Amino acid sequence: MTHPAPCLIQLADDLESHGNLLALLNEVPADELTDRGRIGLIQFSHSLLRDFEKIEKQFKRYRASIAPSC
């Protein structure tokens, strides 16, 4: 069973949003956080990575849907 291709505009929006969040992670001074803040940063990073993996899967489905069958 094939899955419908995700909307390319939605993929682009998701990638842009995650890029903004990654930029935020890059700028957070971890050495200035409390222990609880560090735990939150780790949890946020893990969640962001999981979400990004979902976007990658959607992009692979999109790419497969537009690939010519040879």
Rank of each mutant, 00 (worst) to 15 (best):
28 V>A: 01
69 S>P: 01
31 D>V: 08
11 L>Y: 02
14 D>I: 03
45 S>M: 07
32 E>L: 10
18 H>Y: 10
27 E>S: 14
38 R>W: 06
35 D>E: 15
54 K>E: 07
67 A>F: 08
69 S>E: 08
57 K>V: 12
25 L>H: 10
12 A>Y: 14
8 L>K: 12
13 D>P: 00
24 L>K: 08
67 A>I: 04
10 Q>D: 07
26 N>W: 05
54 K>N: 11
38 R>N: 06
67 A>T: 13
45 S>K: 12
4 P>F: 07
54 K>D: 12
21 L>H: 09
8 L>S: 07
20 N>A: 12
2 T>E: 09
41 L>Y: 06
28 V>D: 00
9 I>K: 15
40 G>I: 00
61 R>P: 01
65 S>M: 03
30 A>R: 15
3 H>I: 13
18 H>E: 04
21 L>V: 04
57 K>Y: 05
15 L>I: 05
62 Y>I: 01
68 P>E: 08
61 R>W: 02
59 F>K: 01
8 L>F: 12
55 I>P: 01
40 G>L: 08
6 P>D: 00
5 A>C: 03
36 R>T: 06
49 L>N: 12
14 D>Q: 15
10 Q>L: 05
52 F>R: 00
30 A>M: 09
46 H>Q: 14
24 L>D: 04
44 F>R: 03
57 K>Q: 15
17 S>N: 13
17 S>F: 14
35 D>M: 06
49 L>C: 08
14 D>W: 13
13 D>V: 08
13 D>Q: 15
58 Q>A: 09
69 S>D: 07
25 L>W: 02
66 I>R: 09
43 Q>T: 09
1 M>S: 15
17 S>E: 06
9 I>Y: 11
14 D>V: 02
26 N>Q: 12
25 L>R: 09
32 E>H: 07
36 R>A: 13
28 V>K: 00
50 R>L: 09
56 E>R: 10
42 I>P: 00
62 Y>A: 03
47 S>T: 11
19 G>C: 07
2 T>Q: 06
65 S>A: 11
22 L>A: 06
12 A>D: 13
52 F>Q: 04
24 L>Y: 13
39 I>F: 12
38 R>G: 00
19 G>M: 11
36 R>E: 09
32 E>C: 03
17 S>C: 10
65 S>R: 04
2 T>A: 10
35 D>P: 10
66 I>K: 10
56 E>M: 07
16 E>D: 13
69 S>H: 06
58 Q>F: 04
52 F>H: 05
13 D>L: 13
13 D>N: 14
15 L>G: 04
61 R>D: 04
70 C>V: 09
12 A>S: 12
53 E>I: 03
1 M>V: 10
58 Q>C: 03
17 S>P: 00
9 I>G: 06
8 L>T: 05
23 A>I: 04
